[in-house]
Design a protein around this nucleic acid. Structure first.
Lengths: 157, 157
DNA sequence: GAGAATTTGTTTGATCTTCAAACAATCTCC
DNA sequence: GGAGATTGTTTGAAGATCAAACAAATTCTC
């Protein structure tokens, strides 16, 4: 009989994992996340995908409350507080007092925040272009469609 | 002019986000993760997707070292330690001393671990069935293929 | 073979994320 | 006006993550 290989195999046996949507999804997400971080690091900017999404939502929905934002992001309102603190310290975002409801903060980007967001959006577009470089435009449309189906489908269980 | 709506709109303006692969990927992943947690909670089992993947890898690659496992999972070897500690405390997994290399631990499932993994795999299959219930078998194949392309494509940047 | 360099698992320290529970301020409903 | 709900914040706990330092063991170099 042949002797066992001296070096461990380059790739492990993953069993059923590659056929599981959850597994493949997680790996793709991780790869995309890495490229996002890389793109921003190389440009000398510091931002997470979550922070980018947050800034876009605040930009497009001026006067948003923290509760509404937390709900849109799918996180607890207490989780949001330190995230907003950080963005506010960076001068990207402000919490105004709402004139109509003293409990809520009306969130808005500062002028510097809007300028930064435009810069970030350029980086995100370059990042998206790179991660989709092995896919055709039609494939990307199909992929986004199917992912949206998974999202809204699972949501209704 | 019409008066502004008394209640905030059910859904926010998400701007360019829904056209970004990274964003849609993250949302789908989050929905899938939620269903995974839900499935296990309802069955009275406690397990994360990461732990399931780990158990499958150990099961299919008996005698694996912690370094090899950490590399396969894409995490630091120091991150792996407390995760293995927990699974070992639950009696699912053991660290044997390797006879050929005194530095490494040969990882293996316990008999109880194998029984538990079979139980977990049943739950995962039910979970997969549920999250894909709005997709045809062909769509799932296409989706997994495209996600795999994104993963291996982004990997080579 | 002896010593140097590398590898492995662990510990410690530092951030970050997350939720839950409790709290004060404010609003809404009756 | 007062009871109950909502909002943002603080605090506490758990978990994930990496980096750096460490001892033990192996491998490489001469």
């Amino acid at each position: 009989m042949g002797r066992p290989p001296a070096k461990p195999p380059a790739s492990l046996d993953r069993g059923l994992l590659p056929s599981l949507l959850g597994y493949v999804l997680r790996r793709a997400q991780s790869a995309v996340f890495d490229d996002f971080a890389n793109t921003f690091a190389k440009a000398g900017e510091a931002l997470t995908p979550g922070e980018f999404g947050l800034l876009v939502l605040v930009d497009r929905n001026a006067g948003l409350s923290q509760m509404a934002l937390a709900r849109a992001l799918g996180i607890d309102r207490s989780t949001l507080v330190p995230i907003l603190d950080r963005l506010q310290e960076r001068g990207l975002l402000m919490r105004h007092r709402s004139p109509t409801d003293g409990r809520t903060h009306a969130l808005a980007l500062t002028p510097a925040g809007e300028k930064a967001l435009a810069r970030f959006a350029r980086l995100v577009r370059a990042h998206e272009k790179r991660i989709a470089s092995h896919l055709s435009a039609a494939e990307i449309r199909v992929l986004i469609d199917l992912l949206e189906k998974v999202h809204s489908g699972a949501r209704s269980l």
